[in-house]
Design a protein around this nucleic acid. Sequence first.
DNA 1: GCGTTAACTTTGTGGCGCAAAGTACTTTTA
DNA 2: TAAAAGTACTTTGCGCCACAAAGTTAACGC
Lengths: 101, 101
Amino acid sequence: MAEGNPILLDGYDKLFENRVRLGVMSVLAANDSYDFVSLRQMLGVTDGNLTTHLKALETAGFISSIKQFIGRKPNTSYSITEQGRSAFAAHIGALSKLLKV
Amino acid sequence: MAEGNPILLDGYDKLFENRVRLGVMSVLAANDSYDFVSLRQMLGVTDGNLTTHLKALETAGFISSIKQFIGRKPNTSYSITEQGRSAFAAHIGALSKLLKV
DNA sequence: GCGTTAACTTTGTGGCGCAAAGTACTTTTA
DNA sequence: TAAAAGTACTTTGCGCCACAAAGTTAACGC
C-alpha cells in the first residue's frame, strides 16, 4: 500500500521482450557465431518465426548475418554486434533490477 | 556453429512477457498488497494500460483484487495469489536459465 | 451548480508474433 | 533421368493484444 518511487528502467528494450529474441541474444552472446538451423533447433521454433525475429534483431543492429554455402547447402550464420552486446547487457541489468524491486 | 540441445523452458509463461506485468508481479511478490494508484505511479504507465494488464493477471489467477473505499475515495488493492507466486518464481527460473545458456 | 480532479473501465486500432505457404536448390528414388 | 522429397530459408495473412484516448462515476473546489 505504501507509495514507491517510479521504477526507472534505463536499459530496458521492448525489442527483447520475447522468448525467442532473448534466446537468440543469449546464444549469440556466448558464441562467436551460430547458424540458422542450429538456432532453430536450439530454440525449438518454426522457420518463419525465427526468420522474423532474426530480421528484427538485425534491423535494430543487434546482430549481423553472413550468407554462404557449405558444400552445396546454403548456410546463414549470425553474430552479435558490439551494439547488440551492450544493449542486451543493459536490458538484462534493467530486468534484474525490475525483478528485485 | 556447434549444435546444441533444445532449450527447455518449463516454467516460462508468455503472460509475463511484458514489462508492466513483470513489474506488477515483482511488486506484489514483495508486498502484501499494493493499490492501483501506487502501482500506476510505481510503473509509470497509463490507467488503461495498467487496468488491462491487471485484468489479464487476475483472470489467470495470479493476483486478486479488493475494491473498497478509503474515506470517500474508491481504492482497489491487489495481492499476489499462491498460484501467482509459484508461477512467477518458475518464470524467473526459466528466464535466468535461458539467459545463462 | 459547474468545472475540475480522481479513480478507474471500455473501446478502437495499429502493430506484431506466428505458422502456413512459397521459393530455390539439392538429393534421393524408382 | 524424371519425379518426388528434403533442406534452408523468406513471404504472406491473419488473429491477437498492448496501448492510450475516451468514457464513467463520484467527490471536491469555488
